[in-house]
Nucleic acid binder design. Structure first.
Lengths: 288, 288
DNA sequence: TATTCCGATAGTGAC
DNA sequence: GTCACTATCGGAATGAG
């Protein structure tokens, strides 16, 4: 079988010994004994990471490289065997999500949704779990397939939550879902372009139009969050608090984006929003 | 009905009074009381002209502008009425063909086929007869529709000869052919790309490939003709003739092309080829 | 569903 | 089947000692 380096690059990362010293910082974001977390080379949102199971962590445990080729090959091994890998990826994803949220607050002073899931029909070999922020604002998000492959309501993106449920379900249901037939999933990528934002779902005929709209949605969201912070700051001043502003850290953003400036620190915000949450007993929309 | 200037530009030419003094030389090539011969703005071959019936020449004779909108509307008027216009266009086409052949010899020192015919489904309003040299070598020949719309064997291009035969045929046959249904003709423009040259008919997957091949065919044809001239010149020297070379005229070429140089004049060539034809009793391929 | 390159295909707007 | 512009769609190559 002839494969270009590009299609097997993830496997080459997954083969690295522990610690993966020869993986540059521009690729490797984090790692554990069992997983690697890497920056997606072509991020489709502001934050976009891939979690990979490390081959050496599983080959001593009854798995082959082939088992780890894709979600489909992994699920073929059965619920128990697949479940162990999926749970390891889930654990790494939780860490990654927490890191991304921390960086969201550091850079943008608010958190927003993060989608975690698999592609049923991947192009690159070696199973990879996507951790991607719910904005779809990125210069690498270029075509309909890119977009439709990440929208949870597009029926292509398989959330980790869904896959985890299959693993706990009746074997007959699991086997049905584990088929992951490309003939079933591929057509879904050709669906019309619909904005994924709640209370919008507007349709677009072209990618440039959709992208302009997504940028607008993102700009509006930032403006709303800024206004919210300013209301909170005002409230805080009234209540007599006296903390000063401080610069934020950096390191996880996978695409260039402009954070709005503010005189509130991340810590102030989290503190204030947390207290407000308790007071108002309402849902926050920043975490799925 | 809303039409852009581009779609009705031919009608605006056809409305010009006699003589059409305000039509620039870059557009008007020739005219008679009944017709205009204009350069095709986007020539699909080295030579490409359009023959138009002039509106004032027919409106006093029972025709409306609408009758002259297209071949289809003209034929709707019946065989006799359509025939008069077609014969006028034919007469102008004969003059045009002679002029083009003269210019072929002046510039390229040989003649090649000239196709004369209509498009059954035109885009521009006002009936126009195409007079186009059989080379399809032009920077304006850009897509499959352009190409397939002029190849006589492509079943789209209606030669003047064919249309003239309809006019003399049984009314039932005439009426059938006069329908010119776009649903019948349009699909023919999507046919595969086949070289139109006799003894070739090679298929091509892309326009750049076809165009490269057509350029090659043209270059080879020019080389063959040059070799032929040189053989003739040698023959002529042996027979003791002593005519000198002279430069050629210009004015009809509708696209930039490079003529091969030669020391033979057009007159020499025609004279020699004529005499050779008689001697060898073989076909020449330069004139149909 | 890796990207990139090339080219075909499709829709639009033109005054 | 007018053109020119934009964007989509569709295939093929992609590495490399």
């Amino acid at each position: 079988m002839i494969n270009s380096a590009q299609l097997t690059i993830l496997r080459s990362y997954a083969r690295k010994p522990n610690p993966p010293v020869d993986l540059p910082e521009s690729i490797l974001f984090d790692h554990s004994d069992k997983t690697l977390t890497i920056f997606d080379t072509y991020p489709k949102s502001i934050f976009h990471f891939l979690i990979l199971p490390r081959i050496s962590a599983y080959t001593g445990d009854g798995y082959t490289e082939r088992d780890l080729t894709s979600l489909r090959t992994l699920l073929k091994g059965g619920q128990e065997k697949a479940g162990r890998v999926i749970r390891d990826l889930e654990e790494a994803a939780k860490v990654c999500v927490a890191q991304v949220e921390e960086e969201m607050v550091a850079r943008y002073k608010f958190k927003w949704d993060i989608w975690v899931g698999f592609h049923p029909v991947p192009s690159m070999e070696h199973i990879h779990l996507h951790v991607i922020s719910a904005d779809m604002v990125s210069s690498s998000m270029k075509n309909k397939k890119h977009y439709n492959s990440f929208i949870p309501k597009g029926d292509f993106f398989l959330t980790l939550k869904d896959v985890s449920e299959w693993l706990e379900a009746q074997p007959s249901f699991f086997r049905k879902m584990a088929e992951l037939k490309s003939s079933e999933y591929e057509p879904r990528l050709k669906a019309e372009l619909a904005c994924f934002h709640e209370n919008c779902y507007e349709l677009f005929k072209t990618m440039p139009q959709l992208k302009a709209h997504l940028q607008e949605e993102w700009d509006k969201r930032m403006a709303r969050e800024k206004a919210k912070r300013e209301r909170l700051e005002k409230l805080k001043r009234k209540s007599g608090s006296k903390k000063a502003a401080s610069p934020s850290a950096s390191g996880t953003t996978a695409d260039n984006s402009q954070a709005s400036t503010s005189t509130l620190t991340a810590e102030d915000l989290v503190e204030l929003e947390g207290s407000q949450k308790k007071r108002r007993k309402t849902d926050e929309s920043d975490v799925e």
